[in-house]
Simulated scan of single mutants.
Amino acid sequence: MIISSPYKRAIKSATPFAKTISKEIIKDERLSERVLSSKDHSNWLEMLEDSFTELDLCYPGGESSKQAMNRGITVIEDVLTCSSNHIMLVTHGNLMALMIKHFQPSFGFKQWHQLSNPDVYSLVFEDYIPKIQRIWID
């Protein structure tokens, strides 16, 4: 099963693998990119860093880290109830970082900043305990 953000670049990233394994890509709005603010800000990077520390911080027209994290986690909660053992989620760096942070609170702005594009992490639950590992090789 492949579930992706409906954004074109996410679908484009998922398509080669989907073709290889002959699976359809399921689009899910909950995996859409997080909007930090509805306005452009020259200090957006500083704003983003602050949002990793203050999870409830919400800029006008944007979404707090906690809101985005919860949105992404609902996808994981849903797929944990399905019968498929291997599920690929395709999302955007900021949301992915926040989803990882949910399970590994030490994952923060610094780790987000070190993500490559693309990047791949594995999330495996062993006895209900999440194990997260970066599996992308640059």
Results as ranks from 00 to 15, higher is better:
residue 2 I to C: 03
residue 2 I to H: 05
residue 2 I to N: 08
residue 3 I to Y: 08
residue 3 I to Q: 04
residue 6 P to N: 07
residue 6 P to W: 04
residue 7 Y to C: 01
residue 8 K to W: 03
residue 9 R to F: 03
residue 10 A to N: 03
residue 11 I to F: 11
residue 12 K to F: 07
residue 14 A to F: 13
residue 14 A to L: 12
residue 17 F to L: 15
residue 19 K to I: 05
residue 19 K to V: 02
residue 23 K to T: 03
residue 24 E to R: 12
residue 24 E to Q: 12
residue 28 D to C: 03
residue 28 D to P: 06
residue 31 L to S: 04
residue 31 L to M: 07
residue 31 L to F: 06
residue 33 E to W: 13
residue 33 E to K: 09
residue 40 D to T: 09
residue 42 S to E: 13
residue 42 S to I: 09
residue 43 N to A: 01
residue 43 N to E: 13
residue 46 E to Y: 07
residue 46 E to F: 04
residue 47 M to I: 09
residue 53 T to I: 09
residue 53 T to C: 05
residue 55 L to K: 14
residue 55 L to G: 02
residue 58 C to E: 15
residue 61 G to R: 11
residue 62 G to E: 08
residue 62 G to D: 07
residue 62 G to A: 10
residue 70 N to M: 13
residue 70 N to L: 12
residue 71 R to K: 13
residue 72 G to C: 08
residue 73 I to V: 15
residue 77 E to F: 00
residue 78 D to N: 14
residue 79 V to T: 13
residue 83 S to Y: 10
residue 86 H to K: 13
residue 87 I to L: 01
residue 90 V to Y: 07
residue 91 T to H: 08
residue 92 H to K: 10
residue 92 H to V: 07
residue 94 N to V: 14
residue 94 N to L: 10
residue 94 N to G: 01
residue 96 M to F: 05
residue 96 M to P: 02
residue 97 A to S: 15
residue 97 A to Y: 06
residue 101 K to Q: 15
residue 101 K to D: 01
residue 103 F to Q: 08
residue 103 F to V: 02
residue 104 Q to C: 05
residue 108 G to F: 14
residue 109 F to N: 01
residue 110 K to N: 10
residue 110 K to Y: 11
residue 111 Q to S: 12
residue 111 Q to K: 12
residue 112 W to Y: 15
residue 113 H to N: 14
residue 113 H to M: 11
residue 114 Q to Y: 10
residue 114 Q to V: 00
residue 116 S to K: 13
residue 116 S to A: 04
residue 119 D to Y: 07
residue 119 D to W: 08
residue 120 V to M: 13
residue 120 V to P: 00
residue 121 Y to R: 05
residue 122 S to V: 00
residue 123 L to W: 10
residue 127 D to S: 14
residue 127 D to H: 12
residue 127 D to G: 09
residue 128 Y to C: 06
residue 128 Y to Q: 14
residue 128 Y to A: 12
residue 131 K to P: 00
residue 133 Q to A: 13
residue 133 Q to E: 15
residue 133 Q to N: 12
residue 135 I to D: 08
residue 136 W to Q: 11
